[in-house]
Amino acid sequence: MAEQAVIVRDLTVRFGDFTAVDRISFEVGRGEIFGFLGANGAGKTTTIRVLCGLLLPSEGFVRVAGTGFEQGDRAIKTKVGYMSQKFTLYNDLTVEENLSFIASLRKLGSNFYVERRKELLEFISFDRSLGTPVRDLPGGTKQQVSLAAALLHDPEVVFLDEPTAGVTPASRNLFWKLIRKLAASGKTVFVTTHYMDEAEQCGRIALMREGRIIALDTPEDLKRSVFPGAVFEFDPKTPLSFAEVAAIEHLDLFTFFEPYGLRFHAAIRDGEDWNRARPELECKFNIRRIKPSLEDVFIKTVEGKKR
């Protein structure tokens, strides 16, 4: 049986007195799309940097594509691809110059490089001239070329740190098609995101908060475990004042009551109380039972800690 693509055990990263990552453990299988969710500063980027060999762990065991820090950071760097949240191509160089510089950084043979470049540009459906300065590419295309650059050395595992920040929804869609294609071809994709619709497309997701993983499962199982009871959507018949909303929020009926657009999502605490209170609430709201969204899961576990 092949080893898991990523194995992390009790990983801790400290910067001085600050613990950015606090004894996290998880494994990622080959060909999996693994999502990392969490507020800013939760430790996602720090974890990714460790897994890419860019940051030395303070403690813990890390194994990525069969290598670890005991073989040196460069051993890991050879095996993985990394696309950071900052845009990392040189604007003043052409697409070809950028890719060829990365090929020389990684000491790729020139035949391998030319072959790989052709493959990857086909993969991202790049239809412009190789001599186009990166500066002149639209945002979505730049990001796809960045992905191609991260994949140039044909890594087994690729880490994408907020790859779709700041591009159009259409480009995001296209980019996720590429991610699924990558996973289908056997690559392990490790991705962080702030978009819930993107998180839904991951095989499994880990929720991070204050340096710890507080939940890790498939999107469906996460929803089930975080919201074991029924979840309802409250659609106000007339606009409500803050005071009215606050009054309902503080009823002892709910374990969760959060705005969702103009509506509210609520998880009930107890069936009998709920059945008694429901008729009164139905004067003000259209109430229907829903499946909780990943956003509800995220708010309940990562952000909110009410009740």
């Binding site: 760097k77 050879t78 900052k86 845009f87």
Partner: peptide, 14 residues
């Protein structure tokens, strides 16, 4: 400043 440095050292360079 541009962040390209991070890309640079994410390659196995000495």
């Amino acid at each position: 400043e541009m962040g390209t440095f991070e890309m640079l050292i994410s390659a196995p360079v000495s």
